[in-house]
Every structure is written in structure tokens, then in C-alpha cells.
Simulated scan of single mutants.
Amino acid sequence: MDKVKLHDSQFELWGKRAKAAITELLPLDWDTRIEHIGSTSVPGLPAKDVVDILIGVRPERIQPIAQELKKRGYDLEGSFSDHCWLSLPSRHNRQSIFHIVHLNSRRWTRRIAFRDLLRESSSARAKYLAVKQIAATSSGKKEPTVK
């Protein structure tokens, strides 16, 4: 895990499975949306093999959903009133990260818009990858490579 590699159809499948798992676990209603976000959701973008899922709900449901997922074995990494995030199977061995936010909030719309921009624009993908590589190099980490 945690290796950077080229996007492949496996990422899309992992995203669908993660979304399906949440749908099975939680009673979702008409004002809930689940989206695959992050680098693994963008064809052509190198990514770590960790799937990010964004769950948009009414504000009063953020904390209860996070607590329900925690009871079911998800690792609750962080919790604010308007954003909780959990890992599966754990924060030390992530395969998936689930972000629970207020649907249509600024946090929701910015993440969806950024994902969509990267999906639609090869130049945006190239610029984003360059920034990621610079950040990795300046933080003392080995520059991401594609395997």
C-alpha cells in the first residue's frame, strides 16, 4: 500500500466497492450523496492506492454517522462539527478514507469541483501532479514515482 502508481480501472472498482459498503451499512435517505474523490477518482493521474470517499449529509447527521461507522470498526481519525473522517481498516494501514460533510456546503462543493476539474482537464492534472511532486520533495519525502 501507499505506493504511487498510474490510475487504472482497479481504482474505479475500489471506489464503487467503498461506496456500496457505506450504502449497505447506513440508512441513507434522499438528501445523502456519496462520491469517489481524490487522486484515485481521476483517470490518468498517478495516485496512492487509497480510495477517498466523500459522504454528504444533513449537518445534524455528520456526528451520528461517524459514530455508527466507528462502532462498525472504522477508525475515526478526526472529528469536527462539520467534518469527520474515518479510515478503513485503520489510519496506519489505510485502504479507504471516508469524509463525512454537510451536503452542498463549501467543503463539499470545493472537493467535487476540484475532482471534476482534474477529470476534465489534462493541463490541470499535470499542474496538480507537479505541485504534489514539489511538495513531496520539499517535505523531505522521496519524490513520488509511478510504478
Rank of each mutant, 00 (worst) to 15 (best):
Arg110Ala: 00
Lys132Trp: 08
His102Gln: 15
Pro144Arg: 07
Ser105His: 04
Gln133Thr: 08
Phe114Asn: 02
Arg110Tyr: 02
Ser122Cys: 10
Tyr74Asp: 07
Tyr128Gln: 06
Ile134Lys: 02
Gly140Asp: 05
Val131Ile: 14
Pro89Asn: 05
Ser138Asp: 12
Ile97Pro: 08
Leu103Met: 05
Asp116Gly: 01
Pro89Asp: 00
Leu103Phe: 01
Arg125Glu: 09
Arg110Asp: 07
Arg110Trp: 01
Ser105Asp: 05
Arg91Thr: 12
Trp108Glu: 02
His92Cys: 15
Leu76Arg: 05
Ala113Asp: 01
Ser123Gln: 14
Trp108His: 02
Ser121Trp: 12
Leu103Arg: 04
Lys127Arg: 15
Lys142Asp: 14
Arg106Tyr: 05
Phe98Trp: 10
Ser87Tyr: 09
Lys141Asp: 05
Arg107Tyr: 07
Leu88Pro: 08
Arg106Leu: 12
Ser122Pro: 08
Pro89Gln: 12
Ser90Thr: 14
Asp116Glu: 13
Leu88Phe: 14
Lys141Met: 11
Ala136Gln: 01
Tyr74Ala: 00
Tyr128Ala: 06
Ile134Trp: 05
Gln95Asp: 13
Phe98Arg: 11
Glu77Asn: 13
His92Ala: 15
Asp116His: 02
Val101Gln: 02
Ser79Cys: 11
Ser105Gln: 09
Ile97Ala: 09
Ala126Arg: 12
Lys132Asn: 03
Ser96His: 13
Ser122Glu: 13
Ala126Cys: 02
His83Arg: 02
Asp82Ser: 06
Val101Leu: 09
Ser105Glu: 09
Arg107Val: 08
Arg111Pro: 08
Tyr128Thr: 07
Tyr128Ser: 10
Ser87Lys: 07
Gly140Asn: 00
Lys127His: 07
Arg106Glu: 02
Ser121Pro: 13
Asp82Tyr: 03
Ser96Met: 14
Val101Lys: 03
Lys132Val: 04
Gly78Cys: 03
Arg115Glu: 08
Asn93Ser: 15
Ser96Gln: 14
Trp108Cys: 10
Arg107Pro: 04
Cys84Leu: 03
Ile97Arg: 15
Arg94Pro: 10
Ile100Asp: 05
Leu103Gln: 02
His102Ser: 15
Ile134His: 12
Tyr128Trp: 00
Lys141Ile: 09
